[in-house]
């Protein structure tokens, strides 16, 4: 009887375990202060969470986004799972105002933290997690001619290229670039 009660108690503990305690499937990137973290929260834009200025569309992609956890804390979503300098807004914006379950990496060694969201799905869902790879699709849709060529987006993005053309890779002018490239 005691063994049966113990098994029932153990089962109740498992059922009552919070989502954050579930095992993360996040891939390690070997980052500073890296902590795999899977949790549920509500998608919000940061300006809304901090100042109370809250458009229904979370800024329509022009505001940075975050997650409000059940304890009231705010998580800054800064990165998606792609390795080519891509943010997480395109992956989180479709869930604006909704609760989601995310899995990813919290990074940062000090008090300042940033979350890399690698997987997302609606909270309470049994749906397969979606990898956060929408950024390059959004870029390709807005640059259809460039997307067809082989180089990665950051080598051909017109806004980046125009600034490098004007100010150089170092941002100090073309002459500084020329000298540095010749001597490095």
């Amino acid at each position: 009887m005691r063994k049966l009660l113990s098994m029932i108690a153990a089962g109740l503990v498992c059922v009552a375990s919070p989502v954050s305690a579930q095992e993360s499937q996040a891939e390690s990137w070997g980052l500073l202060g890296e902590q795999a973290l899977r949790f549920e929260g509500k998608v919000t834009d940061l300006l809304c969470a901090i100042t109370g200025n809250c458009p229904a569309d979370c800024g329509a992609g022009k505001r940075q986004l975050g997650l409000l956890r059940d304890d009231g804390s705010l998580v800054v979503v800064g990165k998606n799972v792609q390795a080519a300098f891509n943010g997480g807004v395109p992956d989180m914006l479709p869930f604006c105002g909704q609760r989601v379950e995310v899995d990813g990496l919290m990074v940062g060694e000090g008090a300042t933290k940033l979350y890399q969201v690698q997987l997302v799905r609606p909270a309470g869902s049994d749906a397969v997690f979606e990898k956060t790879t929408r950024w390059t699709d959004v870029w390709a849709a807005s640059h259809p001619d460039l997307a067809a060529t082989g180089d990665p987006w950051f080598r051909k993005d017109p806004r980046v290229l125009s600034r490098i053309k004007a100010e150089g890779y170092l941002g100090l002018g073309l002459e500084v670039d020329r000298k540095f490239i010749a001597e490095w």
Partner: peptide, 27 residues
């Protein structure tokens, strides 16, 4: 914050300017 490109002193300034453009353009 992540250290993905190296130490903090190397991911600012002129060394990191092009990457800073990439990341800003990347949202």
């Amino acid at each position: 914050l992540s250290g993905v490109m190296g130490g903090a002193e190397a991911v600012v300034g002129s060394s990191h300017h092009t990457c800073a453009l990439w990341c800003a353009a990347g949202g």
